[in-house]
Simulated scan of single mutants.
Amino acid sequence: MRELGISIYPGHSKIEEDKEYIKLAAKYGFTRIFTCLLSVEGDKEKIIENFKETINYANSFGFKVVADINPKVFTELNISYNDLSFFKELGVYGIRLDNGFTGNEESLMSYNEYNLKIEINMSNSTRYLDTIMDYKPNKYNLLGCHNFYPHLYTGLGREYFRVCNQNFMKYGLVTSAFVNSQNATFGPWPVKEGMCTLEEHRDMPIEVAAKDLFKEGINTVIISNCYASEEELKKLGELRRDLLDLSVILVDNIPAIEKEIVLNTLHYNRGDVSDLVIRSSQPRVKYKDHHFQLFNPVDIKRGDIIIDSSLYGTYAGELQIAKKDIKNTGKTNVVGRVREEEIYLLDSIAPWEKFILKEIK
């Protein structure tokens, strides 16, 4: 199951504003909340009281709230890893260990009597998780979650991100990573240069970054900073989470059948892949009796969506998406184009991978 989440920081915001944000996110199908207990400075009783009120409100909408903590918090609040009743009373779904223990403590915590989830920091490529697994935890109570990086240029690179993911995915653990709102103004730390997991997502439209994370196999995509706009929440809520949906712009004069092929087909890349194009061949079978007129045989640019005309014989009706600039043979119609910000996603579409195309204006 794939989920969407938001973040709230009760120590840095007003309760009523957080509640409005939670209610709005629930409207668009969000089900997870990340919050931060790393800073418990000040009036601890007041801080905890505010956390409880906000978390109880979130729970009333069915949210699963995970609180970020570290060993220092255990000490400051006089909590033992053998007794997680404090977090049960707080109302959280689980706790995220920003910094870990030795592995045995995490394993023991996973068997807590309250069935609280124990979320492990994913943003490292050490054998930390393997050590926890060596201590035979209840893996059904273990989750993985990446860090976010507020400082420009400090987010993870993609290859390292994938290495970290593999450590968790090999055990079948539910994983999470962060995207940042371009509308948000604050997070838990003073630096406010975006709060993404992958550095390349920092200035990217939020829904494109989310598509990317889902495509990478991440289960839960969480907005890290506050507050995302309603438009951003709506765009995320409308995403297909089970497959890649690419946003496309169609040419003005596209015929009805070609438009139907683009927008009403479950496409998949052929197994015998090409370096130059992604091929969706089934439309040529479905519409084998249709005559495809030639109407826009212009040269083809990377990201263009093309459908072969009947001049191509048995290939007529096949949809392709160009991965590189190529010359048109004069038999193919350019019928649209993938949104510029999403073209890079074409490079990682695997053999037999399914995808859909959704029109934007």
Results as ranks from 00 to 15, higher is better:
173 L>N: 05
285 V>M: 11
250 L>K: 11
48 I>E: 06
223 I>K: 04
206 I>K: 05
340 E>Q: 07
351 P>F: 09
147 N>A: 10
276 L>K: 13
148 F>S: 02
289 D>Y: 09
100 G>S: 11
18 D>M: 15
185 T>I: 08
62 G>R: 00
278 I>E: 07
346 L>R: 05
167 N>L: 15
162 R>K: 13
25 A>Y: 12
62 G>P: 08
117 K>Y: 08
270 R>S: 10
355 F>N: 06
220 T>Q: 09
214 F>A: 01
358 K>G: 03
339 R>H: 12
350 A>Q: 14
119 E>W: 14
270 R>Q: 02
195 M>T: 12
345 L>C: 05
246 L>Y: 08
75 T>G: 10
287 Y>E: 02
300 I>H: 03
359 E>Q: 15
196 C>L: 04
135 Y>P: 02
295 F>G: 06
288 K>V: 00
312 Y>Q: 01
134 D>I: 07
336 G>R: 12
17 E>P: 01
182 Q>E: 03
67 A>D: 12
308 D>H: 11
115 N>Q: 04
284 R>Q: 08
194 G>K: 05
287 Y>Q: 07
160 Y>R: 11
120 I>Q: 00
142 L>A: 03
155 G>L: 10
263 L>N: 07
316 A>C: 06
78 N>K: 13
188 P>S: 15
23 K>H: 02
21 Y>A: 01
196 C>N: 15
159 E>D: 14
71 P>R: 00
81 Y>E: 09
342 E>P: 05
314 T>F: 14
338 V>P: 03
31 T>V: 07
